[in-house]
């Protein structure tokens, strides 16, 4: 039986090293299948995270051969070179709890920091807002709304690596989808939140986020749109034009 050599990062934030496992090769196999095989048949102490296995939940993000990926939808054939070796590690830019499990707290805290929670503009007694599917705002929101919070963009972002306070692509993408949501009350508070020292203006537009997003979203474009919107609103304020 042919095998694949899988090098898995073991350890914690303080110290980690790669451990090598041999996993039987199969016709159809994802990177998550490799990790699951190791945990089930070779070393049950291996820690990793997954839930849905079909690209819905966003919990199985890992570094595969140095690149962030959703492992449940990453076929081994896609990433296996001629060396028949695959390196699997925890997502970059987040603290490692153990082995392949990272602490996502800062990632989600930043979602809240950019105003990423729902800001209702109506109460339960009022009728629901009618939104045209074809309105420009709704179409802009559609482009950003399918995020599954996997953290792949966050791990790919060199600005987050250089500046750990930076909100990162996922949170800012979320902020942009809320700015375009007619149901959002007080959009200025979101624009204010993304304008601070950790905000959208830190983005260098390298577009790693858009390149790696497994759902093919374009956080880089969302961030550019936030920059433009903040720019226009600040210039308007400067010349005293209220909206």
């Amino acid at each position: 039986m042919n095998t694949i050599t899988v090098q898995v990062s073991r350890g914690s934030e303080k110290h980690s090293e790669f451990q090598t496992f041999e996993v039987p090769e199969q016709e159809n196999q994802t990177v998550l299948d490799l990790v699951t095989y190791i945990q089930e048949y070779i070393d049950p102490t291996l820690s990793y995270r997954f839930a849905c296995r079909v690209g819905m939940c966003g919990s199985c993000g890992m570094m595969v051969n140095g690149e962030p990926r959703w492992t449940c939808r990453t076929h081994v054939k896609k990433v296996l070179g001629s060396s028949k070796t695959i390196e699997v590690g925890p997502l970059k830019n987040l603290p490692v709890i153990k082995d392949l499990v990272v602490d996502m707290d800062t990632f989600f805290d930043k979602w809240i920091a950019v105003g990423g929670v729902h800001h209702p503009s109506k109460n339960r007694h009022q009728s629901i807002e009618k939104i045209s599917e074809l309105s420009a705002e709704r179409m802009s929101a559609n482009e950003a709304v399918e995020c599954i919070n996997c953290g792949v963009c966050y791990a790919s972002c060199d600005v987050v690596s250089a500046n750990s306070d930076y909100f990162g692509p996922a949170a800012l993408n979320r902020a942009w989808s809320l700015v375009n949501d007619v149901k959002t009350k007080n959009k200025d508070s979101i624009l204010e939140a993304v304008s601070g020292n950790a905000g959208c203006h830190n983005c260098h537009s390298q577009q790693n986020c858009s390149n790696y997003c497994p759902n093919e979203l374009n956080p880089s474009a969302s961030i550019a749109s936030l920059k433009r919107t903040v720019f226009a609103s600040k210039i308007n304020n400067l010349f005293g034009n209220s909206k």
Binding site: N197, H201, V230, F231, K234
Partner: peptide, 12 residues
Amino acid sequence: MISAKLFILQRL
């Protein structure tokens, strides 16, 4: 670590 103010100043 660049705020909207510095960003706008740099673009202008």
